[in-house]
Simulated scan of single mutants.
Amino acid sequence: MQAEILEKLKAIPAGWQRRLYFMGVLGEALVPVGVRPVIVGGNAVEFYTLGGYATADIDLVVAERAEVDRCLAAMGFTREGRHWFSEELDLAVEIPGSVLAGDRSRVTEVEIDDRLVYLIGLEDLIIDRLNAFVHWRSARDGEWAEQLLALHFDEVDFDYLRCRAADEGVGDTLQKILSGLEP
């Protein structure tokens, strides 16, 4: 990793902003091989809640895992089990899957210093949290689904969200949450 980029990353306070900037750097390094990693999980929740949610790592979905592994190793990350770590940057990366749970055309693109970062779409992230709430009985994920809906109520594509919720078996739960949010 170039010294200038490394110093810029170190200067950004640890947290979601540093992780997003790093993802811009990683994404830029992967452009030549046609790889586009998508941030999912807690870091995506943290982005959409502007830091209201806190996580410690970056979860990615990418089909070309070997390319990302090669790139992370070249950037000085070390692999321990499922995670890649950089003590120098205070960053951790995990690739929990190769298939995005949602619609790739709904991925959110964010530009950071002329670099693109990709995040799971808002509605698909809400479905992810609803699935965790209903199927894994994670009350916190239900609260985050509600928070995401409340924060972005005017931006949500409710037709898409309701359709996905019905397909995932969480439609009733979505409707209960919406009933509490609607004026």
Rank of each mutant, 00 (worst) to 15 (best):
L116K: 15
T49C: 08
C71T: 12
L30P: 02
L91N: 08
F77L: 01
L26Y: 00
A56R: 15
R104T: 03
G102A: 08
R82T: 09
G24K: 06
L89V: 07
S86M: 15
V68A: 09
T55I: 07
K8Q: 14
R106L: 09
A73W: 11
M23L: 10
G27H: 09
W16D: 00
M75I: 01
D69K: 07
L100H: 09
D113I: 01
A74V: 03
R70A: 15
A44D: 04
I120C: 04
E88M: 03
W16H: 06
E67S: 15
P13M: 07
D90S: 14
F77E: 05
T55F: 11
V62G: 06
I12Q: 04
T78Q: 11
D113M: 05
E123M: 14
L20M: 12
R70G: 07
T108E: 13
V35S: 14
L122Y: 14
A92I: 06
D113C: 03
R18A: 13
C71Y: 01
D69S: 11
R36I: 02
V110I: 12
E28Y: 09
L91Q: 07
I112D: 08
V38Q: 13
V110Q: 05
R115A: 05
G51M: 04
E111D: 05
E123N: 15
I58A: 01
A44V: 00
L100I: 13
L50G: 05
A14Q: 12
N43A: 07
L60Y: 09
G121I: 06
V35G: 10
Q17K: 15
P13T: 04
Q17L: 14
I112Y: 08
F22G: 02
P13E: 11
D113Q: 09
D57I: 12
T108S: 04
A66Y: 09
V62R: 09
